[in-house]
Design a protein around this nucleic acid. Structure first.
Lengths: 131, 131
DNA sequence: CTAAAGTTTGACACTGGTGTCAATGTCAAG
DNA sequence: CTTGACATTGACACCAGTGTCAAACTTTAG
């Protein structure tokens, strides 16, 4: 699939897809004509990247995270001490973000509930198409 | 307490505290000499603000979120339909971020576990001083 | 009284993530 | 072959969040 389709399927602009590639978060094969070509797996990847970036993780770290994820997937026991420590550090940062967001989510819910707007809640909770 | 102390206690630079105030996320009383003075409650508030901003919520929205939180605290049934809808929208965004981060957190954990770095995990999990 | 530390406002500047535009190339449909 | 949709690269630009520095004032310590 070409970049346009990938963009459409992920809701991420082509501009950003190229940017992420430039930041080394993505790799793309090239068709003989120079066009980038993507496989199914890239849809997921792009969504994840965009999600993390939107959640305030700088691209540099997104790379580290996703790389570790890959390494784990095909369990490579190789892990330079230093990388592990960096991840551990990052872990607490991520957890802090989660806690903070969770708290806000809960207050938003409480607020909507308290103001007779449960209707909106139902709508918001269902999808869960999150990546 | 003055801005310096507040900064020390929250780990947020004075620069940012002033910035947040300028963005209308914070209010500060002024001592006769012009110095900003803060109450205990501000420690919490500043931490929350910084946390949300770090989690990728733009300051404009942070204001909306925290305002709703306050309103809910002293249950004001007042809630312009429009605000409720904005919050509902924001809610799904927040939830998406949470899901994405949670997923990454779990993979980091799995990775560290898989590479015999449990030691680091213990360290990272304990504190939970999150705000 | 003086020196050091803290505060105030304001300005300049940088970085990272994005939008947008331009010039050029490729491909598919009429 | 021409037209229109989509790709490519590269540049310019913008905004938000931060850092940092400067000049002036206040307060605290010695």
């Amino acid at each position: 699939m070409k970049i346009g389709e990938l963009a459409a399927r992920t809701g991420v602009t082509t501009r950003l897809i190229r940017y992420y590639e430039q930041q080394d978060l993505l790799e793309a094969d090239r068709a003989p004509n120079g066009y980038r070509t993507y496989a199914e797996a890239h849809v997921e990847r792009v969504s994840r990247v965009a999600g993390l970036v939107q959640a305030g993780i700088p691209t540099r770290l997104v790379k580290v995270l996703l790389d570790a994820e890959l390494a784990a997937a095909r369990d490579e026991p190789t892990c330079p001490r230093e990388v592990a420590e960096q991840l551990a550090t990052e872990l607490v940062g991520v957890q802090a973000r989660i806690d903070c967001l969770t708290r806000s989510r809960d207050s938003i819910r409480a607020f909507l509930r308290a103001t007779q707007n449960e209707v909106l809640l139902r709508e918001a909770d269902k999808p869960a198409v999150a990546v």
